[in-house]
Design a protein around this nucleic acid. Structure first.
Lengths: 227, 227
DNA sequence: AATTGTTTTAAACACGCGTTTAACTGTCGT
DNA sequence: ACGACAGTTAAACGCGTGTTTAAAACAATT
């Protein structure tokens, strides 16, 4: 091959944001090829058809996002509370990115809401491992007698709180004034809030009555280096 | 007008489920009119174009869902804990319906994820009042000194937990075996779990350590009559 | 019964879509 | 030098889309 996968990769990089922004139906092959500076026929040449390009774009989005914000390997001795805090921060970071949610996340989001063939392996390769990781952390935080299904529900409660800011950010933006968003809705602050609320529910820290004395911003997230 | 809004209403009733299932781009005017047993030109005759039909369908979905599962008027004396439980149950009921999420909810869901003109008033007329209601309940549960933005974050945490099962049900279905879903993920059980976890976080009930003694199914939701 | 205005109809329109074709370009092995 | 082949190109194809049209059907009023 001469230039073989050069065009293929440019196509993928152009398809990702386009599908993320407009969905499978809304995005057009022509626009994607225009962005990629590639002939329209390239999509059929390299991927067969639009749908297989879409599936490839979803896979690539997952891989990219995972290496952008990987889950750290924790030391055995690290307290479960700290692991949970970092887990939540990473979850929020993946979902919200630095400013707005990156196209990789938005694309996976669409896949979650309107599952196609790509969804099954998305869950298997991407979400399942993270969820098991979370369950492992919870194992250290809740009494051993609590059944697995309860831990899973607790896990969903934690994930759900993070997920909300991704999935319903349009609602949050309309409910909360812009200046309050800027002041109190940064990733670290939300992570601290969710972590504190969750730990309080599990009895690992005092309930909210005491939170006044240590508001979320007072205790910054343990620093870790995602790069 | 003779038969005027008969066709108009049939059109709306057909458009709702269609838009909910396939989205604005995916749904076709022809298919909608076929369902409604109406000529294709009716859409332009009554609504002008496809987009205004969509907006009308969203508005109608909101109105329908609100009267299907209304928020009750609570007695002044009702403990805040009970109000919260009922609020959560209603939220979950609206989102999950009896079996799967009804088309009204799915349609509003699409609007939340990919906001169009209809989103702004959807928040203003539908979500804002409910959120204020929730904040009112939280006022009775948290110390007076806790600032408003903290209560809002707590509100989002509660809403987020419910919202997750609507927005990510494809993921939940893939993560949790079918039989466990049937056994432990009924509306009342989830409502009990979310309510208990939230109250524990606020210090209104003992933390999860004590939950073993009173698992979510043990204390059924107070009955109320939505009809 | 004739007239007016509203609603419904079948057919067509213009356009954009995903996909295909067939010719062309460049690169390599022989 | 030349044939074989991967890569690229412009143009076209067939189809489905939202929308429009002009006539027919209908109901109400005069």
């Amino acid at each position: 091959m001469v230039n073989s996968d050069n065009a293929k990769i440019r196509l993928l990089d152009a398809a990702g944001p386009e599908f993320a922004a407009k969905g499978f139906e809304g995005a057009t092959v022509r626009e994607i090829c225009l962005r990629a500076e590639v002939n329209v026929a390239a999509v059929n040449y390299y991927f067969g058809d639009k749908e297989r390009l879409y599936v490839a774009a979803v896979k690539r989005a997952r891989a990219l996002r995972e290496e952008q914000v990987p889950m750290p390997l924790w030391a055995e001795t690290l307290p479960a509370e700290d692991k949970l805090r970092q887990f939540i921060t990473i979850l929020l970071s993946r979902m919200m990115g630095v400013q707005a949610a990156p196209w990789q996340t938005r694309l996976m989001m669409r896949e979650i809401q309107h599952p196609t063939a790509a969804c099954r392996e998305l869950v298997r390769d991407y979400m399942r491992p993270d969820f098991e990781l979370l369950l492992g952390i919870l194992d250290e935080l809740v009494p051993a007698e609590i059944p697995r299904y309860r831990r899973e529900q607790i896990g969903f409660s934690i994930v759900g709180q993070c997920f909300f800011y991704l999935a319903a950010d349009s609602v949050v933006s309309l409910l909360i004034p812009a200046e309050e968003l800027a002041t109190h809705y940064q990733i670290d602050q939300l992570a601290e809030h969710i972590q504190q609320l969750s730990l309080a529910a599990l009895g690992a820290v005092p309930p909210l009555d005491g939170m006044l004395l240590s508001p979320p911003t007072a205790r910054p997230t343990n620093s870790w280096n995602p790069s």
